[in-house]
């Protein structure tokens, strides 16, 4: 075999293995959600069984899925909008008017993501308690905005860097004020990048569990709390937990699937242009 062809083959196999490895837990979870509780914990695990919708029915009876899903949606979209609103001017300034410390600032912003969230749990909890933000949607929106801001700024910065400076300068010469320059030139030109940034932010918000579990109870609780409520103290019910998880991730999975082309294009924007 030609070495180039062999290399390609190896790469393909490795790719499929990695994809399988990542996808397997999701596959197993969906499978488990159609089993009875007994089948779910059977050893060795059963691959063939009579599927049942029983878990889904129980899950629906026990909790108001729509309420949680709506919270997830409002909070994810809200936090993403707010983060984008703050990040666009920041990334614009950093990309087109960099100072001596811009690079350091960007790195520092990203480095805050390396700090474990528990480290600030107590102060944030106290702040939330004193401002009445516990179990409110706006409270979570604020936390998620701050949580994702470094990544959103960083990504927008990268995409803005791809926009030729000349074009914005031409706009400035044509009489565009900074706001018009951003709105009428920069945003339309970096739309794919902005879209993929927003998508990533929505996904990150949707999947966030630490803050939502600690800062919400019922009113503002998103789907992550919904899932957690099925790991009851009286023991784990794997099948019901799987059913709850499946319907919790279903919307974002479908959303991600539909926008995957956009997402990949955005994430590889700089690399393949």
């Amino acid at each position: 075999m030609h070495p180039k062809t062999r290399g390609k083959l190896v790469l393909t196999v490795v790719g499929w293995l990695a994809a399988g490895l990542i996808f397997f837990p999701i596959f197993w979870m969906v499978l488990t959600s159609f089993k009875t509780e007994v089948e779910a914990v059977a050893t060795p695990p059963k691959l063939f069984f009579t599927p049942t919708l029983e878990n889904y029915i129980t899950v629906r009876e026990r909790a108001d899925y729509v309420h949680f899903a709506l919270n997830s949606m409002i909070i994810s979209v809200g936090a993403t909008l707010l983060a984008t609103l703050i990040a666009v001017p920041a990334a614009y300034a950093m990309a087109f008017f960099p100072g001596k410390r811009t690079k350091d600032l960007l790195l520092w912003m990203l480095s805050t993501k390396m700090m474990p969230a528990v480290g600030v749990l107590i102060p944030i909890y106290l702040l939330f308690r004193d401002t009445g933000a516990i179990d409110t949607r706006w409270g979570l929106i604020v936390v998620y905005t701050l949580m994702n801001l470094p990544i959103v700024v960083w990504m927008l910065y990268t995409f803005f860097k791809e926009v030729p400076k000349d074009i914005l300068e031409a706009g400035r010469m044509d009489g565009a004020k900074p706001k018009q320059e951003v709105w009428m030139l920069l945003l339309p030109l970096s739309l794919p990048g902005i879209a993929s940034t927003a998508l990533l932010s929505i996904i990150l918000c949707w999947n966030e569990a630490f803050w939502s579990l600690n800062l919400t109870t019922s009113e503002a609780a998103p789907l992550t709390t919904f899932i957690a409520s099925f790991s009851a103290p009286e023991g784990l019910f794997w099948a019901k937990l799987s059913a709850a998880s499946t319907i919790a991730i279903a919307p974002i999975l479908v959303f991600g699937w539909m926008s995957q082309r956009q997402l990949v294009r955005g994430l590889t924007f700089g690399a393949v242009k």
Partner: peptide
């Protein structure tokens, strides 16, 4: 005075047309 208020026009080497 910011460039947008100077009332000058510039032609760039790269043309810098608005692609959209």
């Amino acid at each position: 005075v910011p460039p947008s208020e100077r009332g000058l026009a510039m032609v760039f080497q790269s043309y810098a047309l608005y692609p959209h």
